[in-house]
Simulated scan of single mutants.
Amino acid sequence: MNSPTSTEPDAPAGGADEPISGPLTPDELAAQWEDDAPPPSGPVANLAASVVALIIGVGGIILSVGLGLGDPAHPKPGTWPLIVSLVITVLSLVQMLIGRQGGRDGEKFSHLSWFAAIGLVTLVGLVAAMPVAGFEIPSVLLSFVWMKFLGGESWRGATLYSVLIVAAFYAIFILGLGTSIPHLF
C-alpha cells in the first residue's frame, strides 16, 4: 500500500543517488578504496623517506661493525644487526631509484604520520629501560602505549593484550630459548 503510514517502501532501495547495498566486486571495492585513499606523496616525499631509511641503514651498519661481526660458525652481537641494516640500506637505495618515478603508492604526510615517530621513540625508550628495569615492565608499557594510544584499543583490551603478548615473549625467549635478555623474574 502507498499510504503515508505504510512501513513498506514504495520503491526498491538503490536509486540513482543511493548506493546498492550488497557484496562488491573486487573492481568496485578497489575503486572505493582508491576514492577513500589519501593523496599520493609524490617523488620528493619518496626521496626524503628513502634518504632517512638510508641514513638509518648506514648508521646500523657502522654500529654493527662496532659490536663485532664474527663469522657464520661463531657470530658475534653485530651479525644480525648488520644483515638487517644491509637490507634496509639496499631497499632504500632501490626506493631512491624507483620511488622517484612513481610516487603512486606512498601517502602524503598527515597527522597520522607522527605515529611512526612516536613508535620509534617509545621503542628506543624500551631499549634504554631494559638494562635497568628488565624485560617485563618496559615491554608491557610499550605494548600498552602502542595498543591504546597508537592502535585505539580499549583500556581493557590494551591491558589484557599487553600482558598476554609479554607473557608469550617471556615464554618463548626466556623460558624456551634461554636468551640472555635482562629480566626480573
Rank of each mutant, 00 (worst) to 15 (best):
V124D: 07
I181P: 05
I174N: 04
I62L: 14
I61H: 09
E34Q: 12
G68T: 10
F144D: 02
P39R: 15
N46C: 07
R100P: 00
L164M: 08
Q101S: 13
W114R: 08
A48C: 04
M1V: 05
G125T: 10
L160I: 15
A167G: 12
H111Y: 08
P19Y: 06
D10L: 05
F149W: 09
G125F: 09
S139L: 10
S64C: 06
L123M: 15
A13D: 10
F135A: 02
E136S: 02
Q95K: 10
I172E: 13
L69M: 15
A37G: 07
L24N: 09
S143Q: 01
V163W: 00
V87H: 03
L120N: 08
E34N: 14
T79G: 09
P12Q: 12
A16K: 07
L141Q: 02
L54V: 06
L150G: 05
I118K: 09
G176D: 15
V94F: 05
P9D: 00
L177Q: 10
G78V: 12
S162R: 07
G66Y: 05
P9N: 00
G57L: 02
P43W: 03
P75Q: 09
P138G: 08
T179A: 01
P81N: 12
E34W: 02
S3R: 14
I55R: 07
T5M: 01
V65E: 06
S41N: 03
A11M: 07
G15F: 10
Y170P: 00
V163F: 11
G66E: 05
T25Y: 10
T122W: 08
L93E: 01
T179P: 00
T25D: 03
A11D: 13
E136N: 00
W146A: 01
L141R: 04
G59N: 09
L126S: 01
T5G: 03
A167P: 05
G176S: 06
G103K: 08
D10P: 02
E34C: 01
L93N: 01
L69H: 07
G102V: 04
T5A: 04
S162L: 07
I165L: 15
G68Q: 01
G42H: 04
V132A: 12
M96D: 07
P23V: 06
V163M: 12
A128C: 11
I98N: 11
D36G: 03
V163R: 05
V132C: 03
I83G: 03
G59C: 04
I61F: 04
P39I: 13
P23E: 02
P23R: 06
T122F: 14
S180D: 14
R156C: 02
A117C: 11
V121Q: 12
F169E: 08
D36L: 15
G176W: 04
L112N: 09
F149Q: 00
E18K: 01
L47M: 11
T122V: 15
A31W: 11
G68L: 02
V44N: 10
T122A: 15
A37C: 06
V87T: 11
I172Q: 15
F173R: 07
E107H: 15
S143H: 05
Q101A: 10
G99Q: 03
P40N: 13
V58F: 14
A13Q: 06
P131W: 12
G103H: 02
I20F: 07
S85H: 03
G157A: 15
V163C: 09
Y170D: 08
P23I: 03
A49S: 15
G42Q: 00
T7M: 04
G106D: 10
P12Y: 06
P4Q: 04
E107V: 09
